[in-house]
Amino acid sequence: MNKSVTPAILSVSRVSKSYGDVRALDAVSFTLASGFYALLGPNGAGKSTLFQILTGLFVPDQGEAVVAGYNLRTDLVRALACMGVVFQQPSLDLDLTVQANLNFYARLHGLPVAEIRTRTAVELEKMGLSEVAGKRCRALSGGNRRKVELARALLTRPRLLLMDEATVGLDPASREMLLAYVHQLCRERGMGVLWATHLIDEAERADGVVVLHKGKLLALGTPAELVQASGQASLLATFLQLSGQPAAETGATLKAI
């Protein structure tokens, strides 16, 4: 999504990654400015691999990624300081309280004590978690745990928020709440969000969609642009056309989506 008027928050250039003979990412390139972007693709598309590269957990075999002007290869620490991440796999310390989890993260990111106090209070209140701040995370519902992870990721006021299938396992109400809140944050804070999903309805509401399939970037644009360019009636039909899935596979894909 190239927006020449706004500076790039994330720039991915010809990034490739293989696991043995399996090509997980194949020369993927795109640029994002502020806004809500869906990274759309079925399971195995390479979304999580891309996220692991963007968070410095994996190094790409080829290519570069730049976050807020910092190259991940040469300036990983500064790049990570500009990012907030909600991983697909839960990453809360269930034995610690909600407040302790947030404090741990904020200190890990080097926030001073006074800022930790105010920011945790603000984020907890916004997420409706103030009342459970003293509870151990083990006692929280799945939805609330996700909210805590999001509150935690927002503590550092990230320029780029990475959400890796963050709504998996949530009930429809919690999913809707999370999605709406992140959209609102995008507008209020002017940050970029890359929201990995295989759910079409989440992608339909995005400012932009990056379609990934079998490690390749198939398309990027606004949902309307993608639908128009494909000549299909919906984003779902567009996605199926782009991924070139034969009729026999369409049923299975529809189920997944």
Partner: peptide
């Protein structure tokens, strides 16, 4: 992951 993605 949380630890290894801290900006340190």
């Amino acid at each position: 992951r949380l630890l290894l993605t801290a900006p340190q």
